[in-house]
Design a binder for these strands. Structure first.
Lengths: 158, 158
DNA sequence: TATTGATAGTTTACTTGTCAACATTTGTGT
DNA sequence: ACACAAATGTTGACAAGTAAACTATCAATA
């Protein structure tokens, strides 16, 4: 039967190639990590995407145009609108139209957002350490290096 | 000003810790890779989640209960329903109630799905190789090993 | 036999990511 | 000055991930 043959092949060659194995490992590991983060932030009423935007704004230290925020996330342009909408409803950011160029909308953090971010710093750092606790310092550096190398091949297309 | 100080600090210590650096590298790299896959499958009318389910069914070689499929993906139970719905509408899978236990619903691939999967094998493998092209064989193995190590620390909680 | 509890799957509601289409504003080239 | 292109967001539609609540079936047991 072709079915048993297929099963046997599957056991002997679980991956079609080392490249595929690495790619699938990346996807699976990321899934697991994302789940941890999502649970973590949900306790504070934030989603990972929302926290990401707040971190970007704090890192910049001043208001940013909406498209600039979108550029620093993977979020595609139309998606950023609703994201900012919900953050604004939650009282965490403010929208202000630019006077010079009335097309652009600046987004800034509220005091409440800064307060909430400060509360999250320690738990987030602790979670990062927990996720990576099995890796020795050298392994951490190597993992970062390899991931950056993968990303570098995505920038210049062919 | 606190702003320029913050900017300077940000340059000198872009990450709070090596663990955080590795975790963020993982998230960013995965985002980029996911985008590549999504674009790739969209040309064939499939989403990555749909392709994943088809691959699982082909790998098994026989119909699977819906919850068994959900267990093999990161998809949470309620989400799997709509996913199977859309695959069924597209004529790629069939639902059949189990006779022995009328609660369970088996899902099987149609000929059309098998045909489409066969067409996708070569392009998918090519994409995997393209994504990882910068990594030497040893680096590929090391990346897989490190990612597995990260996942292993997520299984046993504390 | 009837109740009680567990299991399989669905429905509903909400957030996010994605694309296509659009409005508004700005800049540029006749 | 005027038309036309480009940039900045927004809207609408759909796929997907998530949690809470629900239905239907099965199993155990009183």
């Amino acid at each position: 039967m072709s079915l048993s043959l297929q099963t046997e092949l599957k056991k002997r060659f679980p991956f079609d190639s080392p490249e595929q194995e690495a790619a699938l490992n990346l996807l699976r590991t990321n899934d697991q990590v994302q789940i941890q983060f999502a649970r973590h932030f949900r306790d504070f009423g934030l989603t990972p995407a929302q926290y990401n935007i707040l971190r970007i704004l704090r890192g910049e230290g001043q208001p940013l145009p909406i498209l600039e925020i979108a550029n620093r996330t993977v979020t595609v342009v139309p998606g950023i609108t609703g994201l900012i909408d919900r953050l604004e409803q939650a009282g965490l950011v403010l929208r202000q139209r630019c006077q010079d160029d009335r097309r652009v909308v600046y987004v800034s953090l509220t005091d409440r957002a800064n307060h909430q971010l400060a509360e999250l710093d320690a738990p987030v750092l602790a979670l990062h350490k927990k996720l990576m606790r099995r890796l020795a310092p050298g392994e951490l550096a190597e993992l970062s290096r390899l991931l950056e190398k993968v990303r570098s091949s995505l920038s210049d297309d062919p």
